[in-house]
Design a binder for these strands. Structure first.
Lengths: 237, 237
DNA sequence: TAGTGGTCTAGACCACGAA
DNA sequence: TCGTGGTCTAGACCACTAA
């Protein structure tokens, strides 16, 4: 079903027409009325409603009974699942990255459990020292399920892990995170250019898309250089 | 419009009938077919579709063209915005709370900005020492916009702030959080029963419902007793 | 082939908002 | 009063799945 090109479906035609029509309009601007669209496209009103229903559901439009249909104010969006590169650029800092380890390894017990693999299964281990505006900010270990990412190590390491995962349709849309405060080990302190036993923020993440567990990351941040910002919830009042 | 009791609307009748019918069914169980419901309720098929559309949108049902309509597997849900009490009970710990301060104050510059008030405006300041299974875990300062919560201090302090806000229709559905690692001040260390300058996790939150900023909290957690757990994203693959 | 959901029509009446 | 969105009808044809 639905092998016809989307442009052939009338409700899709109307939907995309309205979407482009209101693109860039200020919140509160009126959209065409349903009966206007009926005459304009020569379709039934139910078809127009189906088109508008979709735009209302995605938060672009808002219906007010007795008044009309209007451009909705943009919804607030919860924090997306991003990596260091995007996070730094959001803060207006230049993200740099130095790969310390990039190799195939056998999963240890913790990584195996987190990736839902068996101990000893092959995983990709990628360790990077992350800088923001040239200052060491974060030491990040990523473990990837090699079965999901054949040839990943051979294809040359990308700048942004999440961009590389996106290209393979494996960008996590869901994550389980844990965040704690701790002190740096000697090795961490050395790489982050801080004194041993200095306060750090630890952040572990399990990234998933659908039912697939894509990666596990363990990051340690300099507490004097990094605060985690989050937006939670949704605007469904 | 819609002053008729919801039970009078046919698509609502059908929707709630189906909702109760499939309540408790295993994911993958078949729901009644659209045409079955048409004959059963004596309504048009568009009406049945409207009813089922709502259940599909909320993730209860799933349509598979050519096969039928089925109970969907429950969606994963991002971490809700909760407070200490719910968080502890989720971990199977007994949450206790000792109020140290509960009074009306004038907002300082930081609190005023966070609550979008003017410096010197009245705010409710509520400071509590929070214990999990009798061990001090967290010192929490809450600042509430008094205009939104008239008589809050007089009504007796509740166990759970979020429960009390729910009762007034002011439970935050949206929050902006910041999380950092730090060391305890002398006062914090004393109350949390740790050594001064011990590592702690700081968590600030601005809680909102709609456009209203309800509260600002600043919590300091013993790092040896608390790790923050989060689930981010949604299951819209 | 029979049954399913997806799309679509050409109407209708209702409650509400604004003029 | 007129225009709006909300609800509802009684059909229709299509593409797909499963027997």
């Amino acid at each position: 079903m639905l092998l016809r090109d989307g442009r052939g479906l009338k409700h899709v035609v109307v939907r995309e027409y309205v979407r482009e029509l209101v693109a860039g309009s200020a919140p509160g601007s009126p959209a065409p009325s349903e009966r206007e669209l009926v005459t304009q496209f020569g379709v039934a009103r139910m078809t127009v409603r189906q088109a508008l229903d979709a735009l209302v559901a995605e938060g672009l439009l808002e219906r007010i009974p007795g008044r009309g249909t209007f451009v909705a104010r943009p919804r607030r969006e919860p924090t997306r699942i991003t990596g260091f590169t995007e996070e730094m650029s959001r803060r207006g800092l230049l993200a740099e990255s130095q790969t310390l380890v990039a190799r195939r390894e056998q999963a240890g017990p913790g990584v195996a459990r987190a990736l839902n693999l068996t101990e000893g299964d092959a995983v990709i281990h990628w360790r990077r020292l992350r800088r923001g505006d040239a200052v060491p900010v974060c030491l990040e270990d990523n473990y990837l399920n090699e079965i999901l990412l054949p040839g990943f190590l051979q294809s040359g390491m990308p700048t942004s892990l999440y961009d590389a995962l996106s290209a393979r349709g494996l960008r996590p849309t869901w994550a389980e995170d844990s965040i704690s405060a701790d002190v740096a080990t000697a090795e961490e302190a050395d790489l982050l250019e801080i004194e041993p036993a200095t306060v750090v923020l630890r952040h572990s993440r399990r990234g998933m898309v659908g039912d697939k567990i894509v990666n596990v990351s363990r990051s340690v941040y300099r507490a004097d250089r990094f605060t985690l910002w989050l937006q939670l919830g949704d605007d469904a009042d």
